Amino acid sequence: MKSFLYPKLTPPVFTWVRTENGLRSSGKVHEWIEPLTSDSDPETCKEADVIVLGVPLSRSSISASGASEFPDAFRRMWKGFTTYNIDEDVDLSQLVALDAGDVPMHVTNISRCHDNIIQASEVIHQHFSDSKVCAIGGDHSITAMMVKGLHKAKPESKIGILQFDTHFDLRDLTDNGPSNGTPMRNLIESGVVKGSNMYNIGLHGFFNTKDLKEYADEQGVNYITLGRARKKGIPETVMGCLEELTAKVDVIYLTVDMDCLDIAYAPGVPASTPGGMTTAELIDGVLTAAKHPKVNVMDIVCLDPLKDTMVQPTVKLGTHIFLTYLTGIALRSSI
């Protein structure tokens, strides 16, 4: 059913049938997150704590990717999770979370898809100006477009990036275009985000060329290799990045590229690598970031359900990362 945001956003391919008693029946995520429909009151919805946005695009991926299937798989996975986080003694049902649906995509025209993402991001940030926005990708090219939409909605706000990633994502746009290998360079060269306001945690191994490192240095991009982050501690590394960003920007965009994880923990990513983060390390990093008052937008990208194994460990982990982010938001009032 179309919502008041149509045609900027369309209904998700899959939605759960909600019980009359809703959350009270089982405390499951699929009975808690409410879909936006034509019956939703635009003014009441503005009070939502969290807005979920599906961005099903992966035709712009350098490697073969079915990451466009993640928003659907993500929603289907909700039934396997409760709203209660026993580690933090937090029940997410205290938050109002709305599923705004998906950004419409063109079958063949990637540029139009990217324009649609920018427009959808802009309207989401305009209408839900006080809500936390969670974009569910899609490949990493969506991040540049989501940030550009945020910039259009709030041009006076300086934006910073906290990136969990195995890669710089600073490839030359001349050679690669707006692909999943270029989002950070795209933002730098478009003047939307300064390189000095980008912080990348998780680089490791043999998966970046030296010229990308040299470009990062030229632009003042801040990066902490996974080895250095482990020596200092993942939460401590994240906190250090956030402290520096806080002094420079108004809003921090958290982007989680699932290829930051070791292939043993996340087989369902297009560019899986050995030597990456463990599940626990990423969860700790995301929770630390989510507690910060300026981290008000996030995305999860490059998760390919079609490459996942039968029990879908990567889809489950991506859903866990999303709920961990919301846990951090819920904890803010008690910190």
Rank of each mutant, 00 (worst) to 15 (best):
F4H: 05
F4W: 04
F4N: 03
F4G: 03
L9C: 06
L9N: 04
T15W: 01
W16I: 02
W16Y: 14
G22R: 11
S26D: 15
S26T: 12
G27F: 08
E31D: 14
I33G: 02
T37R: 11
D39W: 08
D39E: 14
S40L: 08
A48R: 06
L53N: 02
V55Y: 00
S58N: 13
R59D: 08
R59F: 04
I62W: 12
S63C: 02
S63K: 14
S65P: 07
A67L: 04
E69T: 11
R76V: 08
W78N: 02
W78R: 10
K79V: 13
K79S: 12
G80F: 13
T83I: 10
Y84H: 15
V96T: 15
A97I: 15
D102T: 09
H106G: 00
H106L: 07
T108H: 12
H114Y: 01
H114T: 00
N116P: 01
I118C: 06
Q119Y: 00
E122P: 03
S129E: 09
S131G: 08
K132R: 12
A135D: 00
S141C: 04
I142M: 13
M146H: 10
H151W: 02
K152R: 15
I161A: 00
Q163L: 08
H167Q: 09
R171D: 04
D175Y: 10
G177V: 06
P183H: 07
M184R: 04
M184N: 11
R185H: 11
S190I: 04
G191V: 10
V193G: 01
N197Q: 10
Y199I: 00
I201V: 13
D211H: 14
E214K: 14
Y215F: 15
A216Q: 03
E218N: 12
V221H: 04
T225A: 01
K232L: 14
T237V: 02
V238A: 00
L242F: 10
L242Q: 07
A266R: 07
A266F: 11
P270M: 06
A271M: 10
G275I: 03
M277H: 05
T278A: 06
T279I: 13
V286D: 02
T288Y: 02
A289Q: 07
A289Y: 07
K291Q: 15
H292W: 08
D299N: 15
V301W: 05
C302Y: 05
L306M: 15
T309L: 14
M310I: 15
V311C: 10
Q312V: 01
T314H: 08
Y325I: 09
L331V: 05
